[in-house]
Structures are given as structure tokens and as C-alpha cells.
Amino acid sequence: MRDKPIGIPRSAPLVTVVLAVGFVVCWSSGFVGAKLTASDTSVLTVLMWRFLIVAVILLPFLRSGGRGAIARWSGAELVGQVVVGLLSQTGYTLTVYWAIALGVSTGTTALIDGIQPLVVASLAAPLLGLMTSRRQWIGLGLGLLGVAVVTWADVASPGTEAPLWAYAVPLLGMLSLVGATFVSRLDVIRTTARRALAVHCAASAVVYSVLAVATGNAVPPASGKFWLAVAWLVVLATLGAYGAYWALIERVGITSTNALLFLVPGVTTLWGAALYGEPLTALTIVGLALALAAAATVVVRRRSFARPHRAPRASRGPCR
């Protein structure tokens, strides 16, 4: 595989810019939506109904390749897609929701998860044949510093109730998503993005349903607040985030798309402050500014290319 630079060129088509904005907004909506029912509903209840509904909506795509389409997959292909789904959705969402339920702020959770590009970029060169420049490594380092500053600001806040170990929970989710990103690039995984998403959501729906039933958390509350949260998560955090993510992966590649995660914490923090009264201190703003500087350094290339990098197959990277 030839070396390819990472980044979104300044001359990128308008549709790519719109997809990038939509991706950031939809991804951040997942953290905000996770807190809508965090205080009065089990995490398993929310996640079970979120993925059950999405799985039903996407069920037709399992047969989009023709009669009995899923039956034509090899065992390796199907198992590969299930593994990606369990890592990118089950493992990732469970840790994010758990961290927020423990009291970690939505913005801090988003920023801890946002160090994913650091790990992906460090592994991209040896595993994927991608080239990471010195300038981009500087940007990634700024992002890591931003994570440290914002996390410290959250831990030191007088209103913080989360135990110190809770800040490691979203880190586990980030590692789960990184694993899914690389598993999804195995040669045995060949399918369209829509069918892959259907399998991922179905696998998560099964796991969360089993866990919810086993723990007595399957029955949803009758409150409108619960169903508002589920609708928010289905439309924005799942369908919207997935759609934008897959489209960007095809247009600009894995590392560039994942680098946009540096923009998510700022949006999430503003939403958290406005909706939930989460602290927005000067130290938090400094950390977010570092993350934004990291995104500007990593995402935008100095040179424009005639054609954007496209992944050979649709199922190139997971989302939430």
C-alpha cells in the first residue's frame, strides 16, 4: 500500500465540509443524550431500546444485496462485522454512558475519548501504510495536552462527584473504538456501509437486551423524557453520526475523520454547560483551545490534491 498523507485539503468540496460539521454535531449529541436520563434510568435500559429501534429501522439493509443477501456472507465476513459492532458500539457506548452516569462531565468524557486519533495515527503508519508528518504529530501532541488540562479542570471542580477511577472508564471506550477501527480494515470484511451498520446495531441490540433482561432493566419507564432521549440517540447519535462518519471515511480516510474528534469536546462542553449547568472554567477553555489547535494542525493539509483519498471498501471504520 502506498503512503498517503492525512488531512482534509483546504479546497475540499462543500459537501465534505458539511459532512464534517454534521459528524461533529451528531457525535457530540451522543454524550449530551446519554445524560438526559442518566439520573433516573438504567444505562442498560436506554441502550437496549436505542439499539433495538435502530436495528429494526436498518433491518431491510441486511437484504439490500438481493434475496438472502446476508446468507451469502462467509463466516469470516459475518463474524468480522459482529466483532466490529461489539467493539465500536457495545463496548464504546457502554463505557461512555457509564462514565457520565458516574458523574464525569459530558465534555470531559468527550475529550478523553477524543485522544483516539493519537492512537490511530501512531498505529496507522506500520499497519495501514499511511504517512504522518512532523506537523501532524505536533498537532496530536497538542490534543493530548488539551485532554490532560480539561480532565484536571473537571477533577478539581468543587461540584465534581465522580470518583477518580471513573475517568479511566471512557478511556476503555476509546480503546474499544480504536480496536474496531483496525479490525474493520481486515481483508475478510467486505460489505456496504448500510449493511455493516445494520449488523453492528443488531449485535449491540442482542447484547444489551440480554444484559437488560438479566438485570431486570428491560422495561422502559413511561415518561416522555425517556423516549425523547431514545429518539435523540437514534436519530442523531446513531443514524446521523454513522452516516456522516462512513461518508467521510470514503472521502478523506480514517485518520483525517478521527482527527475531527478533537472538535467534539468543545461542542459537547457548550451543550453540557447550557443544558446541564456543567462547569465551564478558564482552565477548561484553555484545554479546549489546545484541542482546537490540534484539530487545525492535524486536519487541514497544506497542499491540495486532485482527488480525495477513498477507501477501497465501504466498511472501513466504525462509529458509535
Rank of each mutant, 00 (worst) to 15 (best):
Y167M: 11
G143S: 11
A156D: 12
V119T: 03
T106L: 05
W165E: 09
L130V: 11
W152L: 15
A110S: 10
V155S: 10
V147A: 09
V79H: 08
L78G: 05
L111G: 00
T106N: 10
R135P: 15
A125H: 01
T95L: 14
D154A: 15
A156R: 10
A168S: 14
V82M: 02
V79A: 15
L130T: 04
V169S: 02
L128Y: 11
V96D: 00
S157V: 13
A124G: 03
T160Q: 13
I100Y: 00
G139F: 01
A148T: 14
T108M: 09
G141P: 08
A156V: 10
T132Q: 10
L86Q: 12
G80C: 06
L142K: 03
L111W: 03
T151K: 09
E77Q: 15
V84H: 07
V104M: 05
W152R: 15
R134H: 13
L118F: 13
L86M: 10
T160A: 14
T106W: 00
M131D: 11
A148K: 14
I112P: 06
I100F: 01
W137L: 15
L164W: 11
A121R: 11
L78D: 02
Y92A: 10
D154K: 07
G139N: 10
V83F: 04
A153I: 14
V83Y: 03
Q116Y: 02
A148F: 11
V104P: 12
A76T: 12
A156P: 05
T151S: 14
D113Q: 07
P126N: 07
A153R: 05
P117W: 02
G143P: 00
V96P: 04
M131E: 13
A168L: 15
L123D: 01
T151E: 07
T95S: 15
T106H: 05
G141D: 13
Y97L: 05
I138H: 04
T109G: 10
T132D: 09
S88R: 09
T93F: 13
Q136I: 14
L128S: 04
V96Q: 09
D154T: 09
P126C: 08
A125F: 07
Q89F: 11
Q81R: 12
G129D: 02
V147R: 04
S105F: 02
L111A: 06
G80T: 07
E161T: 13
V104H: 06
Y92D: 04
T132W: 12
L144C: 12
L102N: 09
T95I: 02
L127R: 12
L87E: 02
A125C: 09
S105L: 07
A162N: 07
T108K: 00
A162Y: 01
L86R: 06
L102H: 14
G107E: 01
Y97N: 10
G103L: 12
V147W: 08
G159P: 00
V155E: 12
V119P: 12
T109V: 09
L94C: 08
S88Y: 07
W152Y: 15
T93W: 08
I115E: 00
T108I: 06
V169K: 01
R135V: 12
W137G: 08
L94K: 01
G114M: 03
L102I: 05
L130S: 03
A99F: 02
